[in-house]
């Protein structure tokens, strides 16, 4: 009679023989820590969590929740600019980049420079989600006496590689870092509006010329800048053609599809001897229906009711 838990234990994997062995491993561990976990093993949600729900998209959802709460609490701007970058950051920090959150200054790590510094709430939330810092630090965002400025500032949080805020600085810095150590990849996440800056084009010309093939620019092309639509303010299209003309290899992708982003970045560089650019077509304010494609949400923070509605959409 007292053998029954063991029989349960051996039966459980048989019930789910379609699962690869590695995924079954938690059963064994769970058994060892007590009978309560055996009950958990039987619950259908346990199987679901491990199999059918894409964990990366659940990270994206959690990051959006954190962004909403940070911006709401600090009544700060740029929420829509942060929301359009979420899937790009998740793909990079959870799948593509060679990093170690426990050792943020690991030698030879891949680098991300978040050049559109105003969207920093997304970076802060991603770094917390990835385990660089405790969640508590997010309460320090844009508040009197806090640690986190409203534009990316190096030294304020583990995992931040460079200060940004004035636009057009990230790509030249990233280029220098790529040239200094060619054995690692340097990613620079930029906005589409940021591409108006002359310094961006200086760096594009030089990176192509210098064959900086470990430099990867990622454009969050959300089509809206500070005062209007990018196409109306300063049309940068055809953007991929411009990069290609400067000896870059370019790809375009749906910037909210994690599988597509990961697939596009699986093999780097895109072409030997050329820097790579991933033009990610995104939606400003992505994920919150009433914030999508609206200029106002470049500036406005959500009020209590809007926060509730937005969090509801993410549940």
């Amino acid at each position: 009679m007292h053998f029954w838990p063991f029989s349960r234990y051996f039966r459980a994997p048989q019930k789910a023989t379609y699962l690869p062995y590695i995924i079954c491993m938690p059963y064994y561990k769970n058994y060892l820590v007590g009978r309560a976990n055996l009950i958990k093993l039987k619950s259908p949600t346990f199987y679901m969590d491990r199999t059918s729900v894409n964990p990366l998209s659940s990270h994206a959802k959690e990051i959006r929740r954190k962004i909403l709460k940070m911006i709401h609490a600090s009544k700060s701007a740029h929420i829509a600019s942060a929301l359009s970058t979420v899937e790009l950051l998740v793909s990079l920090y959870f799948k593509i980049m060679r990093i170690d959150p426990k050792n943020p200054s690991m030698q030879g790590r891949d680098i991300l420079i978040f050049s559109k510094g105003h969207g920093c709430s997304a970076l802060y939330a991603t770094l917390v989600q990835r385990g660089y810092e405790n969640e508590k630090i997010l309460q320090e965002f844009s508040t009197d006496g806090g640690k986190l400025w409203g534009h990316v500032t190096s030294g304020s949080m583990k995992g931040i590689e460079a200060t940004a805020g004035s636009l057009g600085h990230g790509l030249p810095i990233g280029l220098g870092m790529a040239l200094a150590n060619k054995k690692r990849n340097v990613f620079v996440l930029m906005g589409d509006g940021e591409c108006d800056e002359g310094s961006v084009w200086e760096a594009i010309l030089f990176a192509g010329h210098a064959r900086a093939s470990n430099l990867i620019a990622i454009i969050d092309f959300n089509k809206i800048q500070s005062l209007g639509n990018t196409a109306e303010v300063l049309d940068i299209e055809p953007l991929a053609e411009k990069f290609r003309a400067a000896k870059w290899a370019a790809k375009e992708v749906d910037g909210h599809s994690i599988p597509h982003i990961c697939a596009a970045l699986q093999k780097l560089p895109f072409e030997e001897g050329k820097p790579s650019v991933l033009i990610a077509h995104t939606t400003k304010g992505k994920g919150i229906s009433f914030m999508e494609n609206s200029l106002a949400w470049h500036y406005t923070p959500p009020d209590d009711k809007q926060l509730e509605g937005a969090l509801g959409e993410l549940s």
Binding site: L171, P172, I173, L175, L179, A180, S199, A203
Partner: peptide
């Protein structure tokens, strides 16, 4: 770009 790149090298 020269100064930005110099900063990247120094970083």
């Amino acid at each position: 770009n020269m100064m930005g790149m110099s900063a990247g090298l120094a970083l």
